[in-house]
Write a protein that binds this DNA or RNA. Structure first.
Length: 664
DNA sequence: AAGGCCGAGTCACACGTGAG
DNA sequence: CTCACGTGTGACTCGGCCTT
């Protein structure tokens, strides 16, 4: 709880005794001592007034005093309205809310402790007659709310009369008077009963009038507050206009003056003096300077954005003119090209130079050479990542970095499998890392691993994005075992060769799990039933199988446990595949041949690719195999493998192979 | 369920103070 | 005397709790 100044002992509690202070004394009567006490408190209250006459009785006519009560003179109203802003009960300062029904300034704290809610009266004062509540003026706002509760028109409590809160001292005082009158009745004093009835009637009338007049006064107070704040706004506006006109005459731009009009030096409820002007001027000037710089920065930023859009448009036109659509995916990203210094220097020229699309056309002439160099460098970097297996072991000692261009492209080897480890990379699918296979896929990989353009020694080195495209030794080893299974030359067999061979493998690890399941199941199984069911996997599906099924499991240890199916089963699986409709067919194995002819990318549906060709390449009636193609590699990767039955003999072969492998 | 009670947190503004 | 700045505190709001 916050301690008030009175509570902390800084302020003594003033007395506010209505009875011993006459109206005359309140507004300048003979009691100098009391007047000084009030005026001292008055000093602490500093409600700013533009006109020194404000706050005196001269403004009282604006108060609706047409209904004046005998118990409350004009002077006392003036004291209530414009007197000290201390709480009339505890003396706390800065109490601006006046309760017009109670005719007192009361702080929230006093309201909380001294107001009695009518609903609690009988419990709090069981010995008092509840009738007396009708004889006491009441507040309609408690100390817990600064407004009266109101309900929407359709609410059942919409017409509920406001809650009543009575001042505790009023209750005691009324109880005393009421008690006296009833006592007279008990004493059988003549006319006592009539006197009580008369008193009650008068008081009820009085309360009614007080409460009604309080509503009028509250309305006036709201209007008065509005009027005063309007005056205040006027003063603030005059000050602001004066300051801005002075600054304008000093040569400052209206743009920047608008920006500082809400500055705390400007937006103040104070008259502008020469002294304050001299003090604030240097501060304002530095503020204006900062604003102007910020504005110029923002304008420049906006200009650069517009120029970048123009440059991007010029680059696109250049691509259309010079690069066949199918090679676009091999080009650097637009953002990379925009930061290329050829375009960059045209974008960054001074703001007053007019830059149009044609400003970039001349520069773009030199772009092709830069891109060619970049592509060569990119390929060289990737090739350098492909390790060369030495004859003695499968460990990596050298790389293909020095391989002559005449040799077969190492990136196309079946064993050259890369993985992009960048989070949210487009090659991510179903949470498992997706391998990046083949030259075109590698070169069109969209992650900004390769800085463009390649930095020459004299240019400033750019901050490169972390290189996250990595040669995957694990997967490469698996691919190597697959190549060996089909009797291929690991150093020469390319991905295309593997696709052409189109062999079918099965996963040894999964087969062993299947076999142990059978063993535990029933010892009495027939020979036919002892046969294992395994999936017939293409070489690409093997890689996929490993990435999705075994990547997180312990079997991961036995990476290269894929085995070639016996020729009979292989033929059987291929035949089954041929007979059964491919569920992936028509779904997501279609590629655009216009922008991505030989480049692997995520396939889409047939309808999707047709729409793409129509909208992106302006082909009205796209033709299959000309504008879009079906990529069977994707279906082999995605479709569920055909199930073939493996006999014990092959399984023993598998077992022997595995133990042999371990011995080696 | 209505409606008052009550604590906690935030905001705006008046006051105190010291400098010029 | 005027002003800037820091501080104290009443006003206000919100939301949960309690009573009727």
């Amino acid at each position: 709880m916050v301690q008030t100044r009175r509570q902390s002992g800084k302020v003594s509690i003033p007395r506010y005794d209505e009875d011993d202070l006459s109206d005359e004394e309140r507004v300048g009567g003979a009691n100098v001592h009391k007047r000084r006490r009030i005026s001292e408190f008055g000093k602490r209250r500093k409600i700013r007034r533009s006109n020194p006459k404000d706050g005196k009785l001269s403004i009282l006519p604006s108060m609706p005093l047409d209904i004046l009560f005998e118990d409350m003179s004009e002077a006392r109203w003036a004291e209530l309205l414009y007197g000290a802003t201390n709480c009339h009960l505890c003396g706390t300062m800065n109490i601006f809310n006046i309760d017009f029904a109670l005719r007192r300034r009361l702080c929230l704290s006093c309201k909380k402790t001294n107001l009695v809610y009518s609903g609690k009266f009988s419990k709090k004062f069981p010995e008092f007659d509840p009738v007396i509540l009708d004889l006491i003026p009441y507040a309609t706002i408690s100390g817990w709310r600064s407004f009266q509760r109101s309900y929407p028109p359709n609410h059942k409590l919409h017409n509920k009369p406001p809650s009543k809160y009575f001042l505790e001292s009023d209750i005691y005082s009324m109880a005393q008077t009421f008690g006296l009158l009833t006592k007279n009745i008990h004493m059988r004093k003549p006319g006592a009963k009539a006197k009580l009835e008369e008193f009650k009637k008068e008081r009820v009338e009085f309360v009614k009038d007080v409460v009604e007049y309080a509503r009028v006064c509250e309305g006036w107070a709201v209007e008065e507050y509005k009027r005063l704040s309007g005056l205040k706004d006027e003063v603030v506006t005059i000050r602001r206009n004066e300051i801005t006109s002075r600054l304008r005459s000093l040569g400052y731009d209206q743009f920047d003056l608008n920006a500082i009009s809400w500055s705390r030096h400007v937006h103040q409820y104070k008259d502008l003096t020469e002294r304050s002007w001299n003090i604030m001027l240097p501060k304002l000037e530095s503020e204006i300077k900062a604003r102007r710089e910020a504005r110029l920065r923002a304008e420049r930023h906006q200009l650069i954005r517009i120029r970048k859009r123009l440059a991007a448009s010029a680059y696109r036109n250049w691509k259309v003119k010079n690069i066949p659509g199918r090679d676009w995916s091999l080009l650097p990203q637009d953002s990379q090209v925009l930061s290329w210094e050829g375009l960059g220097s045209a974008i960054e020229v001074d703001s007053d130079v007019v830059v149009g699309e044609e400003s970039f056309e001349g520069v773009l002439g030199g772009l092709e050479e830069v891109i060619e160099k970049w592509k060569v460098d990119k390929k060289r970097k990737l090739v350098s990542l492909v390790p060369v297996a030495t004859p003695s072991s499968s460990s990596i000692s050298e790389s293909h970095a020095q391989v002559q261009d005449g040799d077969a492209n190492p990136l196309d080897l079946a064993t050259s499998i890369f993985i992009c480890t960048r989070p949210h990379c487009s090659s991510f699918r179903s949470r498992a890392l997706q391998p990046v296979l083949g030259t075109s896929q590698l070169l069109s990989h969209t992650c900004p691993c390769f800085t463009f353009p390649i930095s020459d020694s004299n240019s400033t080195p750019r901050v490169a994005a972390p290189f996250e495209l990595r040669f995957s030794e694990d997967l490469s080893r698996v691919a190597k075992s697959l190549v060996e299974c089909v009797g291929g030359d690991v150093a020469r067999m390319t991905m295309k060769d593997m696709d052409k061979r189109d062999a079918r493998f099965f996963c040894g690890a999964c087969a062993r799990v299947e076999r142990s399941g059978l063993r535990e199941g029933d010892e009495q199984l027939q020979d036919e039933e002892k046969k294992l069911e395994v999936g017939a996997l293409s070489w690409r599906a093997c890689i996929n199988h490993l990435m999705t099924i075994h990547r997180t499991q312990e079997e991961h240890q036995e990476l290269s446990d894929f085995r070639l199916l016996p020729p009979v089963l292989e033929q059987q699986a291929i035949a089954q595949e041929f007979c059964e409709p491919d569920p992936a067919f028509g779904q997501c194995a279609w590629l655009c041949a216009c922008c991505d002819c030989h480049v692997y990318c995520r396939g889409t549906s047939r309808v999707g690719v047709i729409t793409h060709v129509q909208t992106q390449h302006d082909v009205e009636n796209p033709l299959e195999d000309e504008h879009f193609v079906f990529d069977s590699r994707i279906t082999k990767l995605l479709r569920p493998p055909q199930v073939v039955r493996l006999d014990e003999e092959t399984l023993f072969g598998l077992h022997a192979h595995a133990t042999d492998h371990k011995k080696l």
